[in-house]
């Protein structure tokens, strides 16, 4: 009889664990400005995405003569992501490329390992992987990253571990740690850039949220902590702030960021634009979900 009780108690314990509700919508979108979020698409959902970054809003290249950057495109991404399972997304996109590597195609893999539960697991945890291939023509300069002596030199990778918590109905915070690997780098640069990211989302009204992201390289010439990084190399930390409108069927993000590139393999190694010099831009992302 004791055995039966033990089994019932064990089943109740398991069912109470299983019965915990996962916290929904830590973020409304799989991307927050330029940073991948912890969110994952449910199975058989297709997300068609268009992301655009205009030219410098202010500074020498901005102002009225370029209609505050709206007449220029710093970078454009068109692509999709798909929920293969409730824990795994794959994606594909094409960007113009804002750094020296141009005409980029990207493959994305995202896995969800842990979900924040009401009264249970305190955080959500996802892994993000990105492989980027430049399809641009070869340069004739052997010191250029577009010389592409080997096919592998066209490629760059980014992997990160993303942890996030929805603290309340209004506020979510995300931290990430990642490595960006470039197969070929200019003399004096490093192949592996270790970086960390911070993302927040603050729900202001029912449909409007304030979002922000920063991606901080911790080594190499790109890092603000590296004495040799400035002013010669002119690198700056990508930093964005924006508004997110959720209209149910789709999410629309309007943002301002100094990063010209859209994908991590582009903006982490190559962001030189400076907020203080007016080299930030208006950007938007449209994401539309379909059931397949």
């Amino acid at each position: 009889m004791k055995g039966i009780y033990s089994v019932i108690i064990a089943l109740l314990a398991v069912s109470s664990l299983l019965g915990q509700n996962p916290v929904s919508e830590t973020f409304s979108d799989r991307w927050v400005i330029n940073s991948p979020s912890v969110e994952i698409l449910p199975i058989r959902k297709l997300d068609i995405r268009i992301t655009h970054r205009f030219g410098d809003l202010a500074g020498n290249a901005g102002g009225w003569k370029s209609f505050y950057g709206l007449e220029n495109a710093a970078d454009v991404a068109i692509g999709f992501e798909y929920g293969v399972s409730n824990r795994m997304n794959i994606g594909f996109s094409r960007t113009k490329g804002a750094g020296p590597m141009k005409q980029l195609v990207h493959g994305v893999l995202k896995m969800n390992f842990l979900r924040q539960m009401e009264g249970g697991t305190p955080i959500s945890l996802s892994g993000f992987g990105l492989a980027t291939l430049s399809t641009a023509e070869r340069s004739t300069d052997p010191s250029s990253v577009t010389y592409f002596e080997k096919f592998a030199h066209r490629m760059a990778f980014h992997v990160s571990l993303i942890g996030a918590r929805k603290f309340s109905e209004r506020f979510s915070l995300q931290l990430s740690a990642g490595v960006t690997h470039r197969n070929a780098v200019p003399a004096g640069d490093e192949n592996n850039l270790i970086n960390t990211g911070l993302v927040f989302r603050l729900q202001a009204t029912k449909t409007l949220a304030i979002i922000g992201d920063v991606a901080l390289p911790l080594n190499g010439r790109q890092s603000p902590f590296n004495e040799a990084s400035s002013p010669l190399n002119d690198y700056n930390t990508p930093l964005g702030i924006g508004l997110e409108f959720n209209t149910g069927g789709h999410v629309f993000q309007l943002n301002f960021t100094n990063s010209a590139g859209i994908m991590p393999t582009d903006y982490l190694p190559y962001t030189r634009s400076d907020w203080a010099e007016g080299q930030f831009r208006i950007g938007f992302t449209i994401s539309r979900l379909f059931n397949l």
């Binding site: 592998a152 780098v185 192949n191 592996n192």
Partner: peptide, 8 residues
């Protein structure tokens, strides 16, 4: 396809 090359 991973390499660690530094250009000249």
């Amino acid at each position: 396809s991973c390499t660690n090359d530094v250009l000249p």
